[in-house]
Design a protein around this nucleic acid. Structure first.
Lengths: 383, 383
DNA sequence: TTGTAAGCGTTATCAA
DNA sequence: TTGATAACGCTTACAA
């Protein structure tokens, strides 16, 4: 941890000026002999360029921030998974912020752009407030927003299309012959809650199905609450034959309750979740789920930002990532296994999981597994 | 994106020297009138301190790096989840590196410490090579290693105890009356594979059970491979009554195969996984799993590092986090539901999800309910 | 080809 | 209480 050498140290050691050292280090034309001396000195001293000083001079940090609402949320993690390698490949470091979905925190991050510790920012806000818009307008570095922003906002943004997503699911259920399709939603005063609720209504209308209030049950976006909501619904409408759940957790809760109630899935009741998290493939029966393309959105956002960092200052762009339906056992019936059986959306999955795709979770958890292929046995567990 | 104002801009505007501006900004004793003028100017111009310049001067970046092997791995994510808030609370930013378990990349990160873009580093290497040890010895900033390092290595480290973990599981199965306990492991040339295999053997011995090679099946740490391994085992030993799986994915594969084979879980065969990932709680039947305390390890590592950053330069410390058995339906039998039914370790759930968790993504999964037990890793103090 | 010197935006010392 | 001024470690005119 000794104080590292600087170009001054090297210059002295090599008997040249700091300018020469800098030139050598940057590969600028220099006499061979000088190059040799400098390199030798640098090697011996274990010299490493100070990134902070370089940044101060160059006004570039080679860092990009990603502000996610919640480090614990699989959807954001899916974004992170894609963003990280893209940035890394372009020579950028990733600074991670977790705003806990608190608006003030998000504003803070936007404000801190003025500190110039990053060259740009990718942010995925829960909802976009007036304060957000103001900060965005005066942001001191390029920003890409993952999520929708009001028409006319001058900022790059990458959005999902949950309306189409819900429609894919409802159409799928309809195609399977289901006619009493219930909606288990989260609170309507949330952005997704509202959007999904409306999309459900719309999808039914377009299919010529009546909108039946008794088929709509509001709970919250968690497993317990989802279960409770489904229990309530079941008590009210025993002959419901399909559940459109506003996210995967709700759907898992639904599976719990249906099982307890002796209903077969999908024979008696088909179930669809949303977000297509790892949990969907892991559950049993495996869960048909609508992917809103978190991974793709993350990748697109990173790419947009990189273009900005490379100097593109054209008009703000909007990228919309299409949803995709991952059909699994909870609606398909046939193969009760776990693998995806196809997808309604655009063919190709795009990025999907990373690795060479062992199992569907893939890298999901090499768990500790990973810890070390090839490892020769250094002991793991302590003591 | 206009070039932000600097203290020079402010000084001019306020009609004072940059020194005065700096003083005001840092709350050093200054005449009221001057303070007023400076603040006014700063406000009007929307001044924000330049973090890079401050870092250059102060030799502190207020950034800490976390080098994880794989952004996609739940075990590392659990660490990240704990590390992030601890650092944030202490005023540090988090720089994320994903090394893809490539040794060269890890060495690189260690080397880059010389660039001084962070004040410290938390690293969770797959395995610790000679190269690691050398870099660690000359690291230019404090480092905390998550994982075991060779005896005598002068570096803080936080380790899991998979040996005790396996034992908890085997003991549990034994207590349930199971006597034909099979081990479904990953490759033995991996650190965890070797450790878990040995621990299994040892646990049996201590219980007075014979070590029966036909009860051991090696596959890989993924669902498909786990399923294949279990199928092979089942063909060989039809009356096996318990499966100790080396991770959760393998265990999920086991559930698939058992179901297909018409075996009831846990009545006919009890199943235990390892790592206690989100998937364990989501599966059906929910999976009893051994947590190796990823979350706690992350937290402990962050805390250790913070102490170093605050100047503690005592002897290197080793913290060992105890494993914990999360008992669920795949062994408990009683409640087939999804909730944890208890745990060998500490009670209470601790942090859990943040925010009001509305939206969609939101906290997609609390699934991991337990992720954040209070975790008291006992410190063992510097050897 | 090389060295001197002027910044990059702060903080901190030292006189005044 | 304040203002010059010298660093921090590097890059880059500009001279030599």
């Amino acid at each position: 941890m000794a104080d590292g050498p600087t170009i001054n140290t090297i210059a002295e050691r090599a008997g040249v000026s700091i300018a020469s050292v800098s030139r050598v280090l940057n590969g600028l034309p220099t006499r061979q002999e000088t190059v040799r001396k400098v390199m030798a000195a640098a090697d011996e001293l274990g010299y490493v360029r100070n990134a902070v000083a370089r940044s101060l001079k160059s006004r570039r940090t080679h860092q990009v921030a990603f502000a996610m609402a919640d480090v614990g949320n699989p959807a954001y993690l899916a974004m992170l998974r894609q963003i990280q390698p893209v940035l890394k490949a372009a020579g950028y470091r990733l600074v991670l912020h977790s705003t806990d979905a608190v608006v003030a925190d998000e504003i803070d991050v936007l404000h801190s752009l003025g500190e110039r510790y990053v060259d740009g920012l990718i942010m995925s806000p829960l909802r976009v407030t007036e304060a957000h818009l103001q900060m965005l307008a005066t942001a001191r570095a390029p920003v890409v927003i993952i999520g929708s922003v009001p028409e006319g906002t001058r900022v790059d943004n990458v959005r999902a299309d949950s309306r189409t997503g819900v429609r894919l699911a409802v159409d799928h259920l309809y195609a399977l012959g289901r006619r009493r399709i219930a909606m288990i939603n989260g609170p309507l005063d949330t952005v997704p809650g509202a959007a999904r609720g409306a999309a459900y209504r719309e999808a039914l209308r377009d299919l010529g199905l009546p909108y039946d209030e008794s088929l709509v049950q509001i709970g919250d976006f968690y497993r317990q609450e989802g279960a409770a909501a489904v229990a309530a619904l079941l008590a009210r409408v025993p002959d419901v034959d399909a559940l459109m759940c506003a996210n995967d957790l709700i759907a898992l809760g639904a599976l719990d309750v249906l099982r307890a109630a002796g209903k077969r899935v999908p024979e008696d009741v088909a179930v669809v979740g949303m977000d297509d998290t790892d949990l969907a493939a892991a559950s049993w029966p495996s869960l048909t789920s609508v992917s809103l393309g978190s991974a793709e959105r993350g990748k697109a956002a990173a790419e947009l930002l990189l273009e900005r960092l490379q100097g593109d200052d054209g008009e703000p762009r909007v990228v919309t990532v299409p949803p995709r339906l991952a059909v699994r056992a909870s609606t398909a019936g046939a193969d009760q296994g776990s693998a995806d059986q196809g997808s309604a959306g655009q063919g190709k999955t795009g990025q999907g999981k990373t690795g060479q795709g062992k199992t569907d979770q893939d890298s999901a958890d090499q768990g500790s597994a990973d810890q070390g292929r090839a490892g020769h046995g250094r002991k793991e567990g302590g003591q």
